[in-house]
């Protein structure tokens, strides 16, 4: 099993519903977020190209954050989901430094927090909160090893990319372009 997400940059309108859904689902403290939306615009008026990406932890296959954690608080769950066990984390910040995507933050309570792919929902067979609220249905979640899963299907017919693959982390969020 390998959980992954595919996000359609052509469908996303940048409404940030995914961000609020995550904040409420996961009790993310005010002023913090586990996912965020980036808009990249290139060109000169009127010839413009726009890419809107909902970003979050890439649940990398080769996660530097898991590697550098001195206590094992950062670890892989089934399906490659990367999570942090709060009461094992000492808050050293090494994992924050190690993530090329700035996907982690230091929770006001001291431990490090990040996207969990809504593990608690996924375990019950539900989709992550962000995926379930997206009004344009531009996010696909599922098991990459299952050819019938939403994510495998989405990747079959479209061109896609990952972010900063040269960082070598093998990110598992695929952006349809």
């Amino acid at each position: 099993m390998r959980y992954a997400m595919a996000i359609d940059t052509k469908k996303c309108v940048g409404c940030s519903d995914c961000v609020v859904a995550c904040q409420t689902e996961n009790n993310v403290p005010h002023g913090y977020c586990r996912d965020w939306v980036v808009e990249v615009m290139d060109g000169t008026y009127p010839n413009l190209e726009l890419e809107i990406r909902s970003e979050r932890c890439n649940h990398c296959d080769n996660s530097p954050c898991v590697r550098c954690c001195p206590t094992g608080a950062s670890h892989y769950e089934a399906g490659g989901i990367v999570t942090v066990t709060a009461n094992e984390c000492i808050g050293c910040g090494a994992c924050i430094e190690s993530c090329p995507y700035d996907a982690r933050y230091s929770h006001p309570d001291g431990y490090v927090d990040k996207c969990t792919f809504c593990l608690h929902r996924v375990e019950k067979g539900e989709k992550p909160a962000c995926v379930s609220v997206c009004p344009t249905n531009c996010m696909y979640f599922g098991d990459l090893e299952d050819p019938d899963s939403d994510v495998s299907q989405a990747l079959q017919n479209r061109k896609y990319k990952t972010l900063a693959p040269e960082a070598g982390t093998k990110p598992q969020i695929y952006y349809l372009i």
């Binding site: 940048g14 996912d35 430094e97």
Partner: peptide
């Protein structure tokens, strides 16, 4: 002109706009 912004207004302490977790 290339423009890159957080449309969701992300502004996490010690991380945005520049990482500064180690003092």
């Amino acid at each position: 002109m290339k423009e890159e912004i957080f449309v969701s207004g992300r502004n996490i302490p010690n991380i945005d706009p520049f990482l500064h977790i180690w003092h």
